[in-house]
Design a protein around this nucleic acid. Sequence first.
DNA 1: GCCGTGTCTTGACTCATTCCAGAATATGCG
DNA 2: CGCATATTCTGGAATGAGTCAAGACACGGC
Lengths: 160, 160
Amino acid sequence: MAHHLVDSDETALTALRAAGLRVTAPRRAVLVWLAKHPHSTVDAISAGVREVLGTVSTQAVYDVLRICTATGLLRQIEPAGHPARFECRVGDNHHHVVCRRCQRTEDVDCAVAAQPCLEPPDDRRFVVDEAEVVFWGLCQDCVPAGQLADVYPPQGEIRQ
Amino acid sequence: MAHHLVDSDETALTALRAAGLRVTAPRRAVLVWLAKHPHSTVDAISAGVREVLGTVSTQAVYDVLRICTATGLLRQIEPAGHPARFECRVGDNHHHVVCRRCQRTEDVDCAVAAQPCLEPPDDRRFVVDEAEVVFWGLCQDCVPAGQLADVYPPQGEIRQ
DNA sequence: GCCGTGTCTTGACTCATTCCAGAATATGCG
DNA sequence: CGCATATTCTGGAATGAGTCAAGACACGGC
């Protein structure tokens, strides 16, 4: 239950301690940044953290993200064909919508009843531990017709 | 509705024509190979096609896969952190289970009621056109306890 | 306050995939 | 059948995301 939701530098510190991890500047900065900018890519996180700390190696950011994901402080989502994104884990089982055009990513509560998508496949040959759901589409900024051309080329014209 | 399901060299030819694409040896070979080996990676497809045709450039395989995916003859799936896989598209809305260990990938019919996961998110800010669902877990070959150690390290021991 | 071990820095490196360009080839329309 | 054009080939090189390795550094238990 206590999923140590991070929302400040202090809670980041607490969350790290609770997870049995050392408290370091890069770790705190990454957690705080992600609390304020969910669904960030590694690039964005690195840039954001550097604004605060000055210099932080890319490797350090990857290390922080890996260890925090492994201990459950963060959740990693990897939309097909796009670089990984991270968010503070809330313990609930929400999904994501990703805009095909601008890659804006937002949370979606699990629709319908509670966790219909976690229903494990019928056959028992697989032991499922996670259901990853990504809704693809267009965000409101990208919907206007003029912007659709290169994403959804008129089907009849694909002829090479 | 005819989604021109490919299952032989002849149907591959028909499907290509129907899609308005030229019929070439690499294209036919790729489609036939995928009909018999769904969820193949580019590497596997290249190897398989070369068994049949002798030499085929990697570039050609990528080209074929791209154009066929664009025209709807093939479907591309990209399990997070793994190279892309392709399958003949059947038009239905099935999902996939992927083994965390050996990456075995198999089809899963959309569980529960028909397409619960296609239910678009409540808010109208996104226009959803596809729901991508990947179930992560372990296949029967990888379930035995001895093989779990490096994938699911005992939580308490992650302490660096 | 010290020291051992965990973490960060630096820089080279892997891997999948894309791009490029010119030459060779093959498809399918007329 | 013949031609215009799409496709493929060779192969080289670039990209982007992420990893590895060795040494420097710092957190926190003592």
